[in-house]
C-alpha cells in the first residue's frame, strides 16, 4: 500500500508528531519522484537545504530545486528568496517558473505555512494549485506536504486533510525492527476509501521498504472477535417427517388436482365462440379519463 502511494500522484500530506519525525519518509517520497524523472521543487522553511539534501544520491540531488524560506523568512536581512506570503496561487506559480518536466512540489513544512497564513487561504491554494498550474502550462504531478500534527488544533488538521487525496499518518513503531508505523488513507477516483496500516523501514539513499500490512485496524483496538454461534439445524431432531423420499415425490406429482385442466379443455375455454359479441372502443378527444372527479369538465 505504501509503495503504491509512493508511485502515485495527486496531493499527499504526511502527518507526524514530536515522537516520530516524518521527514525521512518525505525524503523517500521525493527520491522516488526524482527517480521517475520529475523535477522536485522544495519550499523549505523548517530546515536548511543542505540538511535536506544530505544522504541523497547525486542523481536525485541534481533534480532538487530549492526555494529557500529558511535563511531569511521574514526578509529582515533583505536576502529573502521567497516573497512575504509565498503560498498564494500567483506567487507560487511565479516562484516555480517554467519547467518542462513534470513537477513535484514539496512543502517542508505545511505547518510553517499554516501558522503564518490564514487557514482558508492555504487550503484554497493547496486545493486549486494543480488545476491552475495546468492552465498556465505547468504539469504539477504531485504536491507533498509535511504537517506536524501536534502544532495545530485537530480541527485545522482535519480541514486540511479533507483536501488531500492521500494522508499518511506516521507514528512510532512498536518494535525496533521497523522505523515507524504509517496509517495510509487514500481516496480513490472511484469514490472508494482505502485504509491500511503498515510498518516501514528506510534503507540507504531513502529507498522505502514496507514490512507488510498490519492486521485489520479494528483488532488494534483490542476488541475480541466474536465467534459466531454454531449453526444448529432446526429440522434435525423432529418427531415427524419433513422430507420426501424420491418415491413419495413421484406419487405426489402424479396426483391431479381438481383445478388442473388438460391443454385441450383450456384452449377450448379460451377460444372465443362464434356468436359472442365483442365491443370495440376507440378513445375520443373529449373523453373524461379522470375517475376521481367526473364533473371536472364542467365550469359551474
Amino acid at each position: 500500500m505504501l509503495e503504491e502511494v509512493v508511485s502515485g500522484g495527486g496531493s499527499l500530506i504526511i502527518i507526524d508528531d514530536i515522537n516520530c519525525c516524518g521527514r525521512s519518509l518525505l525524503k523517500c517520497f521525493l527520491a522516488a519522484a526524482a527517480h521517475k524523472g520529475d523535477s522536485i521543487h522544495i519550499l523549505n522553511f523548517d530546515i536548511p537545504k543542505d540538511e535536506l539534501r544530505a544522504g541523497m544520491d547525486s542523481e536525485v540531488a541534481e533534480r532538487l530545486v530549492f526555494h529557500d524560506g529558511f535563511m531569511d523568512p521574514l526578509n529582515w536581512n533583505g536576502e529573502a528568496v521567497l516573497p512575504a506570503s509565498p503560498f498564494t496561487l500567483k506567487e507560487l506559480r511565479v516562484c516555480i517558473g517554467a519547467d518542462a518536466s513534470p513537477v513535484t512540489l514539496v512543502l517542508d513544512s505545511l505547518s510553517w505555512i499554516l501558522l503564518h497564513n490564514p487557514v482558508s487561504a492555504v487550503c484554497h491554494t493547496f486545493q486549486h494549485f494543480q488545476r491552475q498550474a495546468k492552465s498556465t502550462g505547468l504539469n504539477v504531478r504531485q504536491i507533498i506536504g509535511l504537517l506536524h500534527g501536534d502544532l495545530h488544533k485537530p480541527a485545522v488538521v482535519d480541514s486540511v486533510c479533507c483536501l488531500a487525496s492521500t494522508v499518511v499518518t506516521v507514528t512510532q513503531a512498536p518494535s525496533s525492527e521497523a522505523q515507524g508505523t504509517a496509517v495510509v488513507l487514500q481516496r480513490r477516483k472511484s469514490r472508494k476509501i482505502v485504509r491500511a496500516t503498515e510498518y516501514f523501514t528506510i534503507l540507504e539513499h531513502f529507498a522505502l521498504k514496507s514490512l507488510g500490512q498490519h492486521q485489520p485496524l479494528m483488532k488494534l483496538a483490542g476488541e475480541k472477535e466474536e465467534t459466531p454461534a454454531a449453526e444448529t439445524d432446526p429440522a434435525a431432531n423432529l418427531t415427524f417427517n419433513l422430507r420426501l423420499s424420491e418415491e413419495e415425490r413421484r406419487a405426489k406429482e402424479r396426483v391431479l388436482l381438481p383445478y388442473h385442466l388438460s391443454a385441450e379443455v383450456k384452449s377450448s375455454l379460451l377460444q372465443s365462440h362464434a356468436g359472442v359479441a365483442k365491443i370495440y372502443y376507440e378513445p375520443d378527444a373529449a373523453d373524461d379519463v379522470d375517475e376521481e372527479d367526473p364533473d371536472d369538465d364542467l365550469d359551474v
Binding site: 487557514v119 484554497h124 486545493q127 480541527a155 482535519d158 480541514s159 479533507c162
Partner: peptide, 13 residues
C-alpha cells in the same frame, strides 16, 4: 461552510 468557501467555522471554536 468548508474552508474553501473562505469560512472558518470548520477550523475554530
Amino acid at each position: 461552510g468548508s474552508v474553501l468557501w473562505g469560512d472558518d467555522i470548520c477550523c475554530s471554536d
